[in-house]
Amino acid sequence: MARRKKVYEGKAKVLYEGPEPGTFVQYFKDDATAFNAEKRATIEGKGVLNNRLSEFFMTGLNSIGVPTHFIKRINMREQLIRAVEIIPLEVVVRNVAAGSLAKRLGIEEGTPLPRPIVEFYFKDDALGDPLVAEEHILAFGWATQQDLDDMVSLGLRVNDFLSGLFLGVGIKLVDFKIEIGRIWDGDYMRLIVADEISPDSCRLWDIETGQKLDKDVFRRDLGNLADAYTEVARRLGVMPQREAGPTKPTLIN
């Protein structure tokens, strides 16, 4: 990473200028945050796991015709990605009532939803990433109606792919978040899946036991986060457990 120009640093990743125009190098950190970074820790090996898992999911999506920003993995913590213009919305797809949906509507956590629900949240940490309606998105020009239609379609296609993948290894996909970016091929603009797909951005429950295998382990102090992520990687055959490295969390004051 030496001498590279940093473009952006978020809570879990750093973007550096890529080797070619229109590319970035995305570096996965070991930092874990919750409640808009009010709770923080360093989970050794987390960045390695998320890099490998996100590569696995993005590669799978590319192979079935769902476009993503992923180009290739560079090493254990970095991947080469396409530069995109991120739409300032988080796209959340829910299959089971959990988290903010269960709390907001008074639904018992774990209640299956009659169909997948797609929600949009405005990306602004200072505001707590508030839930927004399509009318807000259109009124403030964050996306067009065609963008929204395409984002819903992308979210549901990702949901179908991930749900089947996890079901095959005994994991229930409760919900997940993706970000979507615009790219241009000449004068033609299209939307693609960006950011990452990992246990950081999904809720994953063991089908038999209900054990949580996602960032709720950290949010709710349910155990070792790296152990949970390693179990997801092991079931998917993504990475031997020994590659995850030490897993003891170190709290940051």
Rank of each mutant, 00 (worst) to 15 (best):
T68I: 02
H69D: 08
F70M: 11
F70N: 04
F70V: 08
I71H: 04
I71K: 09
I71T: 08
K72R: 15
K72L: 11
K72S: 13
R73N: 06
I74L: 10
I74C: 09
N75Q: 10
N75P: 09
M76D: 15
M76L: 14
R77I: 09
R77H: 13
R77G: 09
E78W: 08
E78P: 04
Q79I: 08
Q79Y: 06
I81W: 04
I81G: 04
I81F: 07
R82P: 11
R82D: 11
A83K: 15
V84W: 02
I86D: 00
I86M: 14
P88R: 05
P88Y: 05
L89A: 01
E90H: 02
V91T: 07
V91L: 08
V91K: 03
V92N: 01
V93K: 06
V93P: 04
R94W: 00
N95A: 07
N95S: 02
V96P: 00
V96E: 02
V96C: 07
A97S: 12
A97N: 00
A98E: 07
G99P: 04
G99L: 06
L101G: 04
L101N: 04
L101E: 00
A102H: 07
K103N: 11
K103R: 13
K103E: 12
R104M: 09
R104L: 03
R104W: 07
R104E: 05
L105E: 13
L105K: 10
L105Y: 12
G106D: 07
G106M: 10
G106E: 09
I107T: 07
I107K: 06
E108I: 15
E109G: 11
E109F: 13
G110S: 11
P112W: 03
P112K: 06
P112T: 05
P112V: 02
L113F: 03
L113R: 04
P114G: 06
R115H: 13
R115K: 15
P116Q: 09
I117A: 13
E119R: 03
F120I: 01
F120Y: 09
F122Q: 08
F122R: 09
K123W: 04
K123R: 06
D124Q: 05
D125P: 00
D125I: 01
A126F: 08
A126T: 12
A126G: 11
L127N: 03
L127C: 03
G128N: 03
G128T: 03
G128V: 00
D129R: 02
P130Y: 04
L131Y: 10
L131T: 03
E135M: 11
H136E: 12
H136A: 10
H136S: 10
L138P: 02
L138W: 06
L138E: 05
A139K: 15
A139I: 07
G141A: 11
W142A: 08
W142P: 05
T144C: 11
T144L: 10
Q145E: 15
Q146M: 14
Q146A: 14
Q146G: 12
